[in-house]
């Protein structure tokens, strides 16, 4: 602010006083602005988060109490919802469904990480025929609504005999089918200098060694974001299992929760709320443990490039 050219020499004597007054005004305005901002944020934050807080409280309430008050604390806390909900109306407990979710998630995340890293490495560090067309296809898949490919995919998996298994959920991701991740990793890798890789090459490392020992460690933060997002999305995925998984013993938690809504008697609310809490718990824990990666991943995805 000091080097602003003053074009009115006549006003020179007043400048100091004027500046002080302006500074005072600005300070007051800024304090007011800060207060208003905190106030608004606190209100919005409360409105946003209260439903979740209420959900946790209500899951410990008795069925009679759930719709009688808006409070968080249960009058007579009970774990009945958890105990009965965990048993489910099927021959299996909810533990089985968590295990199934885990069985879907783990191979899917590993496959995604490997295939998307390979694709990003190719796009960011190599020149090859049709590169432009192929990279355009990443953007195209990103924008392509899944709804248009879903029916033929189903028919394909049916012909392969993969229905009612986890293969339809694993294989497309293991072939870098989630274009968002490819795009994110390409953006990230392009922003990193290739010096280290050059040095490794000069030292006689081949491209695979360079990928594993140089590129992957540099890519680690972005790769963690990819794994976390894939974990989260798969945990929440409902339509995929709904279409492909039909036996109850293979249900992931999302389907099991829907099943418990359909089969629980109309007034057993706390069971459903309790199981809802359990289903969102893994995602919440992972998010709070690693929130930095989520925020960075989302911000990076939106960067223009």
């Amino acid at each position: 602010m000091t080097n602003v050219p003053v074009t009115r020499p006549a006003a020179r004597p007043d400048i100091k006083a004027l500046n002080e007054a302006a500074a005072l005004r600005r300070a007051r305005r800024e304090m007011l602005s800060t207060l208003v901002r905190y106030g608004l944020l606190a209100i919005v934050g409360l409105v946003m988060l209260y439903p979740l807080i209420w959900l946790i409280g209500a899951s410990f309430k008795t069925n009679q109490e759930i719709f009688t008050g808006a409070g968080f604390l249960p009058h007579a806390p009970t774990a009945e919802g958890y105990i009965k909900g965990w048993q489910t109306s099927t021959p299996y407990t909810f533990g089985r469904f968590f295990w199934n979710s885990f069985l879907i998630i783990l191979p899917k995340v590993i496959g995604t990480a490997i295939s998307c890293t390979m694709a990003a490495y190719a796009f960011a560090r190599f020149d090859f025929p049709l590169k432009k067309v192929l990279f355009t296809s990443v953007i195209a898949i990103l924008l392509l609504p899944n709804v248009v490919t879903r029916i033929p995919q189903y028919l394909l998996f049916r012909d392969l005999g993969w229905l009612d298994s986890f293969l339809p959920l694993w294989v497309p991701s293991a072939l870098a089918g989630d274009a968002f991740f490819v795009f994110m990793l390409v953006q990230f890798l392009r922003s990193l200098p290739a010096d280290m890789e050059e040095a490794a090459r000069v030292d006689g490392a081949n491209s695979l060694q360079t990928l594993i020992f140089i590129v992957v460690p540099m890519l680690a933060p972005a790769l963690i974001s990819v794994c976390l997002f894939q974990f989260m999305w798969t945990m929440n995925d409902f339509l995929g299992p709904l279409i492909y998984v039909s036996s109850v013993d293979k249900y992931p938690v999302s389907l099991a929760l829907k099943l418990s809504i359909d089969t629980t008697e109309a007034f057993d609310w706390n069971r459903i709320l309790a199981m809802s809490v359990l289903t969102i718990l893994p995602a919440l824990i992972v998010f709070f443990a690693a929130q930095r990666y989520f925020i960075e991943g989302i911000s990076a995805g939106g960067r223009k490039g």
Binding site: G45, M48, M235, L257, M275, A283, L284, F294
Partner: peptide, 13 residues
């Protein structure tokens, strides 16, 4: 805090 609901996204819960 504002991002938490997005994390739970399309979750059935």
């Amino acid at each position: 805090a504002f991002y938490v609901p997005s994390i739970l996204g399309g979750s059935i819960a």
